[in-house]
Amino acid sequence: MKVLGIETSCDETGVAIVDGETVLANILASQVPLHERFGGVVPELASRAHVEALTPLLDGAIERAGIGFGDLDGVAVTVGPGLVGALLVGIAAAKSVSLATSAPLIGVNHLEGHILANAVEHGPDLAPAVCLVVSGGHTMLVHMPEPHHYDILGQTVDDAAGEAFDKVARFLGLGFPGGPAVDRLARQGDPNAIRFPRAMADSDDYDFSLSGLKTAVLRHVQLEREAGRTVDPADLAASFQEAIVDVQVSKTLRATRDRGVGTILLGGGVVANSRLRERIEKAGADDGLRVLIPSMDLCTDNGAMIALAGLWRLRRGDRSPLWVGADPSLELR
């Protein structure tokens, strides 16, 4: 079963074709250089870029997969959550492909895409699991007792993890996006150099709060400067990163114990963070848990995760009508 996947929810245009769990093509047009000077994603610029990128990406994916549009058995597209104008571009393209090829249309939740991306490399046996989805737009813990059944345990009450990385990176003059830049710098620093607060680490819910940490970083630097001391940026980056990772790892592990599951699934762009991978893998091994992490290009936004999630939905007999719309705050359920 060959399914086309289209992802345009934010600042990456992703198009992929999967055949079952096998990825035949997965190509991406990144808009990072476009938004870099603004220090964040500009929605109108993102929408414009999607229109320019989609046509060549669709041709490229079809060519790389070695098939024709007529060979498609389904068309999957992200319908939310995300930027509404950006989502609508991908949805319009997907509907045209669906009508022109008679392949059924399936709208996909972007967050389900991040979770199911694990099936590409780790096989379809994912549930029951606890999923940690961390990206520029999301920080969320989800219990998946069985496939397509989601129970949101908690999420960020303010900034997403990726936003916190971006803001601290901007403060340190590291550029955009902040995640990879902070990660790189942190490798030369001591994660225990500065003890930043672990917000909500001890609360008995599964929510996260990241805006306080960002403020603590700024305040620390200010106080040190006033005291005439210099702050090592590498130590600062490592300590900031450690505070984020600490809370995420401990809450994820607690969720596996609470729900009695033996699998942790990771997804989202922030999962590319080397410290998060390292710490959660170590913690999982200590607790005898199976920790599944998609490879880098399947963690960040991509078309393959949408194609795969759509394929799973189509297999269950799910279909979306041609008038399906974008839902910028679509919930995972």
Binding site: F69, V84, L88, V89, A92, S96, A100
Partner: peptide, 19 residues
């Protein structure tokens, strides 16, 4: 109007591409 305009343009060019 940008958003609506884009939807029509994207749909049209994808029809031409697939057909």
């Amino acid at each position: 109007l940008y958003t609506g305009l884009r939807v029509g343009v994207e749909a049209a060019k994808t029809f031409a591409q697939v057909l």
